[in-house]
Computed example of a mutant assay.
Amino acid sequence: MHQPLKIGELTAKLPIIQGGMGVGISLSNLAGTVAARGGIGVISTAQIGFTEEEYDKNPLETNLKMIGEHIKRARKIAQGGILGVNIMVATKNYELYVKEAVKNGIDAIISGAGLPIELPSLVKGTKTKLIPIISSLKGARVLLKMWDRKENIAPDAILVEGPKAGGHLGFTLEEIKNYEEKAYQEEIKEIVSLAKEYGEKYQKDIPVVTAGGIQNKDEMKEYFSIGVSGIQVATKFVTTEECDAHIRYKEAYIDCKKEDIVIVKSPVGMPGRAIKNDFIERTFLGKIPIKRCHNCIKTCDPKETPYCITDALVNAARGKLKDALIFCGANAYLEDRIRTVDDVLADYFG
């Protein structure tokens, strides 16, 4: 039997977090449905306003407005379930996104694509739970030490994203190539010990949640046996009826083969995992001109960047796959049909 996932006073009946996938892949419908079923549903805030008319003129204002809108919509579906948002540290105006989510009563903020050093100072005095994403013991040590020293605080949970995860990855190409499951599990055990150490100091439980290619109940149990309290799953939720992505995006997962899944260089400055298509082939040939800057990523210089990641991801969410970056996890090729959120949850808890 599985245990519920307790994060502070929040209790998820199912120890599963649905991964936050942007742009526009996990929005209110998917997040609300997973929350209603007892998991933790997560809305990605990355360019969340792209569906709105005013987005091109005022991307920041539109994104902030739609954070509140999607949280409201998800709450209606969630039936009292737990909702989080995923906010990338690399986001320009990161602090405004965090404050907007808190203002709209979000239960948890999950934050990666860089270490969320500033996060505690932005949510001080609120009930919002903080779940940093890290990829290594080293990253966990640095972050916990800095939060401890600067803010006198520890995370409410730690999310460890492994090398089989989708989208942006906190690893070098070398590390991804030489990945060994057993060695990585040893590292996770050490992260669990570190979380216990800080938990004792702050007199709280700090659950560790792990993510990246966990396919079924047996694999989940293997992680539970090394001290992990929950799992995060993203890729398997893409090919559900409830996922907010375009049907063509879902079909790209269903149609792809193992050899179509490649590691690409993202303008965010990290490697990413995606499905090989015309767009990726074109990026190998040279720079793809940028028509308009959406001011999305701190690290991006429009003069230097190989392509606009916002345009590439928005095209994916809209089903314009010839001009799209189709992020996915290592096992996307195993998805062979459209299912439901209930079907995916049954893979782990059925």
Rank of each mutant, 00 (worst) to 15 (best):
P163T: 10
I288L: 14
E335M: 14
I71M: 11
L345S: 09
G8Y: 00
L14F: 03
R282S: 09
E242N: 05
E335W: 04
R73T: 10
R37H: 10
V42P: 01
Y202D: 06
Q18V: 06
L60R: 08
C328S: 15
G227Y: 01
A324L: 11
F349K: 09
I110H: 00
I158L: 14
L115T: 04
C308Q: 11
E186P: 02
Y202P: 03
H246K: 13
A113L: 13
C296K: 07
G20Q: 08
K92N: 10
V123G: 05
R339E: 14
A36Y: 03
K92H: 05
P302I: 15
G213P: 01
D260H: 03
T210I: 14
T33P: 02
N152T: 05
L60H: 04
T62R: 05
E95S: 15
Y307L: 12
E186Q: 13
V233R: 03
R292I: 11
A316T: 09
I263L: 08
I176A: 09
Q47N: 12
I188L: 09
I288K: 10
I309M: 13
L10V: 01
E187Y: 02
A332K: 07
K150N: 13
L119K: 03
K57P: 00
G22N: 05
P306G: 07
M66R: 13
D323A: 10
G22W: 02
I110V: 14
A195C: 04
R273N: 03
V192C: 06
L169F: 05
E100Q: 15
A245W: 01
N63D: 15
N58I: 11
V42M: 12
K303Y: 06
M1N: 09
R73Q: 14
D244R: 08
K177S: 14
L27E: 12
L143T: 04
K76Y: 03
E61K: 15
V142D: 05
F279H: 07
D148T: 08
G114V: 09
E151L: 09
I309A: 10
V142W: 02
K13A: 13
Y184I: 11
A317S: 15
I158T: 01
A113Y: 04
T172P: 03
I153Y: 06
R248S: 14
T11F: 01
N93A: 13
A274N: 04
I16Q: 04
G272C: 12
S229V: 00
V208I: 05
I326A: 09
D218A: 15
I158A: 01
S266I: 07
A312M: 09
L122G: 06
G38P: 02
L194Y: 02
Y184W: 11
R339P: 00
Q18M: 14
Q215P: 01
K145R: 14
E53T: 12
E222P: 04
R141L: 13
V142M: 11
A90S: 15
A317P: 03
E100H: 05
Y253W: 03
G227R: 02
G230H: 00
I191M: 07
I158S: 00
H2W: 13
N93Y: 13
C328D: 07
G38E: 06
E222K: 15
S266T: 15
V264G: 10
K145M: 10
A316K: 10
T210C: 10
I326P: 02
H168T: 09
D342R: 11
